[in-house]
Nucleic acid binder design. Structure first.
Lengths: 150, 150
DNA sequence: CAAGATTGATGTTTCAATCTTA
DNA sequence: TAAGATTGAAACATCAATCTTG
């Protein structure tokens, strides 16, 4: 028996089940927000990340890409769409002119807040109601622990 | 203060962090398999699901779509590609001629086993090594608990 | 030469419409 | 009439190549 099989097949099934289940959950929650705002999932993620980046609700393209595990090309296009919708503004950085920063506009701040409210409702009803606040905390903790050794 | 705010902003940040972290993890594990097999993530998911569906490694299009939270259109095209690669075979159901079933070919069974080995290695090294087998079990349990009340 | 960002081409997924069968 | 599956069009994300700046 080699190292490949050491964890038993059950380990792999646990992982695939967790992956599929998490995907179902994330889809269900995001769809709730998408349906009421018309925004695709990636745009919602960008808006919420900027909302959670006080005090100026500003991040660079690469910061957005790193946090969301997106390609920089993808971030360029998401922020293009958000810019055309008037929800964010892109501005070149003064000190390093290679850098482009994305900032929530007042309208974007409002949209992000609305999306956050809708998502919070969904999390409350579909997650907290089933595993409690401590359940969510344990879930987030486990994911973070795996992420740390990155 | 209305129900929307009840869970505190921290609850929402925990969720967004968990979502981003899980996405990073899933991407990292799958990329490992994709790089060595040339198969996109969705094809890998279909192969593994069929592998875990004994005794005949057969599922219908809608079963695949439901388990993976894919559109049926998407499943049609994934199985198209897998069929062209000779990894699965599509056959009409005898008793209900609307239904199409996908079955692993001998070659597909081998490919699925290989993908499972690669993924199991990645899970072992990147997940078990950090949170242990019981950590993965807790993670899967929490996700399943949220999924149940579906 | 390396890092940040963008563009065009490519692959994948979904949506809407359609076809077939129950 | 509804359910299962497929098709073509559109949306989205990634890759490779390119441009600019440090």
């Amino acid at each position: 028996m080699d190292a490949t099989q050491a964890g038993t097949p059950a380990m792999l099934e646990q992982w695939t089940a967790a992956q599929a289940g998490f995907h179902r959950l994330a889809t269900r929650l995001t769809d709730e927000v998408t349906r009421r705002t018309g925004l695709p999932a990636s745009s919602i993620q960008v808006l919420l990340l900027l909302l959670q980046s006080p005090p100026y609700h500003t991040l660079t393209m690469t910061q957005l890409a790193r946090h969301l595990e997106f390609s920089t090309a993808g971030i360029t296009k998401v922020t293009d769409r958000l810019g055309q919708s008037g929800l964010i503004e892109r501005s070149p950085c003064q000190t390093d002119r290679r850098v482009v920063r994305a900032t929530l506009t007042p309208q974007g701040l409002q949209a992000a807040g609305h999306a956050a409210d809708l998502l919070a409702d969904a999390v409350q009803q579909q997650v907290i109601a089933r595993i409690g606040e401590d359940g969510l905390a344990r879930l987030a903790g486990l994911v973070a622990a795996v992420d740390l050794g990155r």
